[in-house]
Design a protein around this nucleic acid. Structure first.
Lengths: 209, 209, 209, 209
DNA sequence: AATGAATGAGCGTTCATTCAT
DNA sequence: GATGAATGAACGCTCATTCAT
């Protein structure tokens, strides 16, 4: 899918980029704080450091702001995810390291991820598809790591499911924080998830016998 | 936490129950379709089969409708979860059966669970707490099943995390449907999750060695 | 002007009277507290001790309640004013006594008089006329007292103006209470007003000379 | 008491002033005609010559309009009252002249004064206090005139009461117009009030004897 | 005669968007 | 390119009034 474009009436592209970054920075805080629907365009403009009129020079609708925000979050997540893949060391250890880094990333970006989860459905259909694709891309990255790290007798489906599980477990650290972060630190959470992933729950029984 | 009450100006309590059920039924469809914020109170009234004035005889604010909807969903989920617990057979098989039933339930109530996920944050603070508690209750139910089904050398934390994993894996079948339901049926999804849960990913390697 | 009628669908006239008295009693308190417009018919019904449906058996519109209240206040005021006229003693002393009694009456009915002042304009035209006539009647009563108490060389106009002055001075004790009742008690207020009425402000100068 | 502020979201202060004047002009007519409660914000906007959206750029609530109207009336009254004080001629004649001017002013502003009398109670508490203070200020101005115009053997209380009487007599020319303006012209009303004020009603008796 | 559930016109207010300057 | 005053459709909610029971 080609990059979805948000048109602007301003010609100078570097200016567009600069203004939109201001905008995203201002908006993301507001969305985290009060959600997309309860944030007004005036507030976004103010938090971005320019007037409501200027805001509308760089976007067409309020939904564009949401899209820009979501896109920016995904881009940042994806960029960091790319660093955590280590293609030269296809061992279980490198998978574990990738999981650790990914969970750390999800911890760092808890608020952003939460916003995305709760607000994507406010995006217009095409933007939702675009965002969905981004997510698929990221899961695919995890799939790649898994495929390289585990013995080859895994089915495509199994790898996909493991990737999805890891992906969601990272996110749930953020969006179920009120439940999980009572019982775990990021470290104990990570350790235990890794252990469960590798060994399953049957292991002990077998070891016992 | 005591049951949160939504006051009504109508005295006949059975009527209140009846009308609220109409309301919930109408509202849930709308919320699924277009989200809470884009649904108007007039639409809710119409979908419920009465006038806007009548709607407001049974609630105080639009948020009350959301709360009623969320509460109703949780109640239905919880009621069905209670049936899937089998205290007489504390074996791994009974855990597996519970997971199957729970995933089936999440499949049946995909839309409702999705709505809840995306709209709880629109609830007022106290209602959010109430709903969060309900969720904790349900996770606790899963913890109970797990504790009874597995050998006793599990730590409290481990059990809690497994419960949370299962809980979220059930939900993700619904809210990641666009990704998962491309590759899996409910049955293959369940089978694979159960296998991963029980055996982990290391198993094969060990078996190989 | 004939007595304005408020129709009721109830036949039993003594019941109508009884219910309306309940209604007036309840409504007047509410009107004093929060004004006519901010009082709802439901509140009136509740304060009257019956249901909203019953309320509407005894009146046609909310304005009818206001009229009933105003009429009742005027009737009570008029009834008490009739007792303060002493036709047998046409002296200045009897005028002074009448003023004292009237000011006392206005003190007793401060709240009611205030309500009337602020809400008559919410009455329909014909009811306003009716109430205005009541007021004219009461001024006429004062005029009568004055005419009988003062030497005969007073013009009709002078008597009318004095009557109006006394009338308004009584009312202003209530509706300017936040200003007057800081500086005066009812007694000092009355004494001073009587003195000013009788002597004017020139007196002293003349006495000095 | 500091000047109560009504905030506006418009930055250009001269524009705020201009728009608010349009608003006050439009609203005062409507309030005179049908009262504050029966006037809708849309009517106010229309009468002011702008849209409902624009109206709300210059006020926060409908009550703000009422406050602006009341404040404007008081300001105009006060401004004119300041011109009628003649500090260089502390004689009875200057008091009489002040009364004449004040009654003339009350005649000119009958409708406005009537509105204020009937609607202040719809103002929020703090605005009521503010308006009450304005009234005290104006009474104080009359007190000043009286103190300077009469011999010095007047008590503070006596002066205050005379000031209040004059103040209310001016207002009653407007709010009792349906009664008074049948019998008097402004001139005959003024002459007679002045005569009563100066001489009292006893005078004649004494003169007779 | 009494009830109270139902109605819907109409209110005050908000806010995304536009466009003249 | 930037501004912010202006717009009005649309919202959540109220409440006087009706009428079946």
């Amino acid at each position: 899918m080609a990059k979805k474009q948000v048109p602007s009436s301003i010609k100078d592209e570097t200016l567009v980029l600069k203004r939109r970054n201001q905008m995203i920075k201002g908006a993301v805080t507001l969305f985290i704080e009060k959600g997309f629907h309860k944030t007004t365009t005036r507030e976004i403009a103010k938090a971005s450091g320019f007037s409501i009129g200027t805001l509308y020079e760089y976007i067409r609708t309020k939904e564009d702001v949401l899209f820009l925000v979501c896109d920016s979050i995904y881009q940042r997540v994806k960029a960091r995810m790319e660093t955590l893949i280590d293609p030269h060391e296809p061992t279980v250890e490198s998978l574990v390291r990738a999981i650790r880094s990914y969970f750390q990333l999800m911890d760092d970006m808890q608020d952003e991820v939460l916003v995305m989860y709760q607000e994507v459905k406010s995006l217009p259909r095409d933007a939702q598809d675009y965002v969905l694709q981004k997510e698929r891309d990221m899961v695919a990255m995890l799939e790649e790591v898994i495929k390289n790290s585990l013995p080859e007798n895994r089915s495509q489906d199994e790898i996909r499911l493991i990737a999805n599980n890891i992906f969601v477990q990272g996110q749930m650290w953020g969006f179920r924080r009120w439940i999980l972060q009572r019982s775990f630190t990021l470290e104990t959470y990570t350790d235990l998830q890794v252990k469960l992933l590798l060994e399953g729950v049957h292991q002990f029984e077998k070891e016992k016998s």
